[in-house]
Design a protein around this nucleic acid. Structure first.
Lengths: 195, 195, 195, 195
DNA sequence: GATGAATGAGAATTCATTCAT
DNA sequence: TATGAATGAATTCTCATTCAT
């Protein structure tokens, strides 16, 4: 956590849990305060308003999410291995933090413009990492250089996102991490049988 | 529209526009009624409650969306052509109805369980069409038969969904339909240079 | 029924039943119309407004209620027998028309001033009958002449009313008519053992 | 008042007054809040909903009403004196609190099942006191032992209730307490001239 | 007379936010 | 800092009544 004040982290964790368990709409500030074991008013010493809580949860959690992925990627050299590492780490982290998975895949898909904008800012860092891998693959002459980087990125992110959402919707009933190699294979080789 | 009653369609269209322009949360029932040129109470002759309006908009619109795609696909025989037709029709329809695009990509990502369930029901029909194409491709020995159909479907839907969302977020600043061939190419051939 | 038009009576009967079964607050005009097998708007050809329905139900029903009691009393000569006849007829009629009992004892106890006033007008006729019996008893030198007629009337009416209400509240679980002789005895002789 | 929180009592008193003056249906929560000098929302910190206000008013007021009667009765030994004390205290308290009289005799006669049930619960305590006096009178061999206690209780309560209602309807134009001895005489001795 | 689709006024309740302690 | 009682704006939905057919 950025801020060293203990209640800040307390509230972030409480919010993540309350939202995952009750859904965004049923997550009143007072409920989060209760879960965090602080008074309602205390929330407002650390956050500007309710939306700011949600944004902060996302920033804090996605911050470490992305750091972890960057760390994993650094240990690989080829774009191919890096892509696999990204997929594995993406699946792995959300598998291990199901509350976070619910919040990122479902509860955060709010349409409030302010919130959406902030989320996109954070997401940008993640998309940049994807772009780096893609560029790396092109430089390696492993990925085709004639393909639109944005489309590739959308394909990677869209696939991972949809895969995780499906898994959350199915109440995490199967092992998400196991899907990583096949997703990797599909993305790189495509659907068709290569002659 | 299923129901022949004129006010029903009037309200659906008004809701689509108002929600696209204001976001779901700022779309008061009275605003929709005004746009539809009916009294507030009239809304409740046709819809159970506010959420029911949103669900109905989605059902009606996605109903014809899917019909249109089915129609386009029927005109193709190979899985490859069908997949391209699906992508083109998907992009094309949302390009032509930007209000619908905004609503499906942003406003509909609500976390209310009831709403999500209804949306998933409608979406199911779409996913079934994708599955049909995939199966067709496998039968043709065009798609690899050893690959998980669910993953392929998630890759297709996730890619299309993310592509459209990005385009909506960028305020429809570029031509979405033009992307279709490249998306098709990426999905079928993958990222890498085939030897 | 005063008015010969058939739908008038239909609506009165429907209202009595709907109110008895659903309570006054859940008895929407449309529900009464449905039960009466007429259109909502038709109600307003026969009644000024919803309150007028309720008033009319009470007037019509209490009209015959009172007529019946008058008829029974005319067949008796002494105040004592007349009082017993009144009690018996009061209990008997409400026993035989449980819907009416529910409506008069519970649903009609509304606090709307207009309604209350109308009810009191109708009730007046009933109280006048009671007064007649009392006067008769005094003339016979059977009832004490030094007692306030209003109080006697309140005692009679209050006792009958409370007895019926209790019976309705207990879901008509015992035989109300059987209580008549004892009520009569209590009213005339009082509680105490006369030496 | 049970609860020591000052606003609780403030709201109860405001509600009693507003309901007595406007009738229950014209007593909007905002009107009660204004009279109590609190914000609308504050009402809901102390009461579950609007109905709960009415129930609470009744419980609080009838609680002390009954306590006062119990206190008066304890000072008497014979059933006869106790009955007179009950009548006097009943009349006296409602005479002194005309708002309460209006609310108990008119506004509280609601047909909402939930409300009626709660009222009956509180009323039960009052009826139990009456039963105690009756039993006392029977034990003293003052009241006839062959008479149904329930009927006697209904006669006493019905008479008092009707007497007060008539007085309220006549806009408190005469002295209610003065009627106590005659009511007592009528109940115990009955209507007829004893030989 | 009869219909029933349409009207729109009206009120309870929630909950994010404040601020005196 | 921390508290939590108090605030009050804001919005859905109901249903008696109307009126064009």
């Amino acid at each position: 956590m950025k801020k060293s004040r203990p209640k800040y982290g307390q509230i972030i964790e409480a919010a993540l849990q309350v939202i995952a368990e009750n859904g965004y709409h049923a997550s009143q500030v007072s409920k989060i305060a209760k879960q965090a074991d602080v008074a309602d008013g205390t929330i407002y010493l650390y956050f500007k308003n309710k939306e700011d809580i949600l944004i902060s949860v996302f920033k804090e959690k996605m911050g470490s999410f992305i750091k972890q992925i960057e760390h994993k990627i650094k240990q690989e050299t080829t774009a191919d291995d890096q892509l696999l590492a990204l997929i594995e780490s993406h699946f792995n982290q959300l598998s291990e933090n199901k509350h976070l998975a619910i919040v990122t895949q479902l509860e955060l898909r709010q349409s409030k413009p302010k919130l959406r904008e902030e989320i996109n800012n954070v997401l940008k860092d993640y998309l940049d990492i994807i772009d780096l891998i893609i560029q790396n693959g092109i430089d390696e002459k492993y990925f085709r250089e004639d393909i639109d980087v944005r489309l590739m990125r959308q394909m990677i992110f869209g696939t991972l996102d949809e895969t995780v959402t499906s898994w959350v919707m199915k109440s995490h009933r199967y092992n998400l991490v196991n899907q990583a190699p096949e997703v990797h294979e599909l993305l790189t080789r495509g659907f068709i049988i290569q002659k």
